[in-house]
């Protein structure tokens, strides 16, 4: 499973942290520091995987990509494919790019709770739930509409996300 999804900048400031297994706040900060010190010491031409046994326990790895001023890091155990997660990071970044029109660090800083919502559409409880950037976009745009309307009265939201279950 995915143990954590992290975005941090090249100075080590966390921009998004999501842990799928409980860690105390102090431990989270320790982990962030450890991850940053590992990543910042790696040159760009090296591979995207780092074994992180001493940070997250045995058989865990950091899979990361470096975009401009940001590191996108997924921490995984051996039930996930390293190469698959690399593609997932790509999907995540593409989606952010579409949502924010040329995403930059500042977008993520100021809209961190939106980024959380986007991430939740892709990874849920440490498992990949959706891998199509288009599907994620569709959901996220509907969520923004709902957010603006605020109301949940079916009459007001004109069918955004409203559904009728045939079985229930």
């Amino acid at each position: 499973m995915i143990l954590a999804s992290l975005i941090m900048n090249t100075q080590g400031k966390p921009r998004l942290t999501k842990f799928y297994e409980h860690l105390s706040v102090e431990r989270q900060q320790e982990v962030l520091r450890a991850v940053y010190s590992v990543l910042s010491s790696r040159a760009d031409n090296l591979c995207s995987f780092v074994e992180s046994d001493d940070i997250f326990g045995p058989d865990t790895k950091l899979v990361y990509k470096h975009f401009a001023t940001l590191y996108f890091v997924f921490v995984i155990d051996n039930a996930e494919s390293e190469l698959g997660i690399l593609d997932l990071i790509q999907v995540f970044v593409e989606t952010l790019d579409r949502c924010f029109k040329n995403v930059c660090e500042l977008d993520i800083v100021h809209n961190f709770n939106k980024v959380h919502t986007i991430l939740d559409e892709i990874v849920m409880g440490g498992q990949v739930v959706e891998t199509s950037s288009a599907e994620v976009m569709k959901a996220v745009q509907d969520i923004w509409k709902l957010e603006r309307v605020g109301d949940l009265n079916p009459a007001n939201v004109k069918g955004i996300g409203h559904y009728r279950n045939s079985r229930s």
């Binding site: 799928y20 939740d120 849920m124 440490g126 969520i143 949940l152 939201v157 955004i160 996300g161 559904y163």
Partner: peptide, 17 residues
């Protein structure tokens, strides 16, 4: 059991986490 899929989605996501 809400009629809006996004509310159900939020609840499922929270539960799954």
């Amino acid at each position: 059991s809400h009629t809006n899929q996004f509310i159900v989605g939020l609840a499922l996501c929270a539960l799954g986490n």
